[in-house]
Design a binder for these strands. Structure first.
Lengths: 259, 259
DNA sequence: TCACATCTTCCCGATCATCGGGAAAAGGTG
DNA sequence: CACCTTTTCCCGATGATCGGGAAGATGTGA
């Protein structure tokens, strides 16, 4: 009986516990946690004890919160931290010049996961949040990373696309052409599929081994005139980040990789 | 036999696996992971499969790395992300005015854990790193947070101090006086115990409920003249961060809390 | 103050997922 | 081709984990 019904391994249970905490629920009581993680309360309380013992959870009176030590362990080992640190100064440059939201995102599964964002004050509406996700096809970051990504990922993307109802362009051939165009120009301009009034502009960032590891993007108001200045600022910054990551290739090299 | 010798729970094993990855070892092979986590290889490989299934680990050919999804889950639920986001713009202000390393740190266990740092270019030597730790007694951030922390934490700190060989001040009474002084003045100036040539200056940041949740600090060269400008910049920024976090109290309120 | 609801801790026997030795397959190297 | 390391797979034994349930703690409203 130990494992009531479905194939939930210990690890999966743990993920449910961790995922029970989010920005809307930064702290939980034991009972709340049990409910949100769909665990029998006695199991939940036992797990909480184990997690507290390892400092993966912190207890604050009766409330529980994700342990700072967990953040530390994960940050130390994840590539995200290094990427963020390399990118931040250059993102500030972009933000200063363009004056709108500047974001850094990576591909994870079938989404773009945003790992950094700056310039939240008076910019246009922007729904991206750090540690937030958006579908690949809905973002300029997702498209530019697809364009510069491995061929098989491109094909997978094109195959999945027709099923997506809200995609602006659904014709695979048309998209193939667009991706080729992005590889050639080195950027992606995408009039707001998410928020109609804003346009996303993205360029690729390359890691030391030449793979397109992240997308750097700005979100500007649609009626903001030419996008060229944004593109220039982004390309300059992206080159700087790539260099900081140890890349010394050319755009031509990168294109060759993704064909 | 299932659990060979010591009391290593599943959770503890998991921590070892996660901790096996760090900035020096961002990717590991299965065998490397088994060694670093001190696990029998067959156990390690089985765990890797489980973790891959939950995307807590990503596989890149034969190499393994901490999954981006893990970073996402942890970031979403941890208080660190919110703190960082609230603080970053103000930290940039400090960095712009003072022109040296600006760091944000919190207390975890018996250390200061740094959660953000900016200004790495031409500043003085600074050994702090994001997701890095330093002992409380060795940092201005640690001391100011102790001064504004709960009384019992202060006493624990004072009791533990005599054992520390490298502490500049070891007399508990002297330190008690220093902490009181910090509460009164609202800042901590600490001539480099870590790097002799640099001085740390730190002020507290308060969260919505009035607790000193983080320390904001700059590291400046010792012969840099008066520290007053740094203090002023830090206090201004710290108030801004605290306000962004929802705090509307006064320093006097904060002092009352820690007595 | 008491009754009632909810949260938290603790106990315990049954069960089954986990453990790890070991063998064999797959790679890599000289 | 021989040798070594890495990776995958199998399998029986075992004890850690499971969760129901009871009892204690806490809170709430009348």
């Amino acid at each position: 009986m130990a494992n009531s019904a479905s194939g939930d391994s210990m690890v999966h249970r743990l993920v449910r516990v961790i995922a029970a905490f989010d920005s809307e629920h930064p702290t939980l009581s034991g009972a709340e946690l049990a409910r949100r993680a769909a665990l029998p309360s006695s199991t939940a309380y036992r797990m909480v004890d184990e997690l507290l013992a390892e400092s993966l959870l912190d207890r604050d009176g009766q409330r529980l919160r994700l342990g700072t030590r967990l953040w530390e362990l994960v940050s130390r080992g994840s590539k995200v931290l290094g990427l963020r640190e390399a990118a931040l100064p250059f993102m500030e440059d972009v933000q200063a010049v363009v004056g709108h939201h500047t974001t850094l995102g990576v591909i994870d599964q079938q989404d773009v996961l945003y790992i950094e964002r700056i310039g939240s004050n008076n910019s246009t509406i922007n729904i991206t949040r750090v540690a937030g996700r958006l579908p690949i096809h809905a973002t300029s970051t997702g498209l530019i990373l697809t364009a510069f990504g491995p061929t098989e990922a491109q094909e997978t993307f094109l195959r999945r696309l027709p099923k997506l109802t809200d995609a602006t362009v659904t014709d695979p051939d048309e998209l193939r052409r667009m991706l080729a165009e992005m590889r050639h120009s080195g950027y992606c301009v995408m009039p707001g599929t998410i928020v109609p009034e804003s346009t996303g502009v993205a360029v690729p960032v390359f890691s030391a081994d030449g793979t397109a590891i992240a997308g750097l993007s700005v979100v500007i108001p649609r009626e903001n005139g030419p996008v060229q200045p944004s593109i220039t600022a982004l390309r300059t910054a992206a080159r700087g980040i790539s260099r900081a990551l140890g890349w010394d290739g050319t755009l031509r090299d990168a294109i060759r990789r993704s064909l």
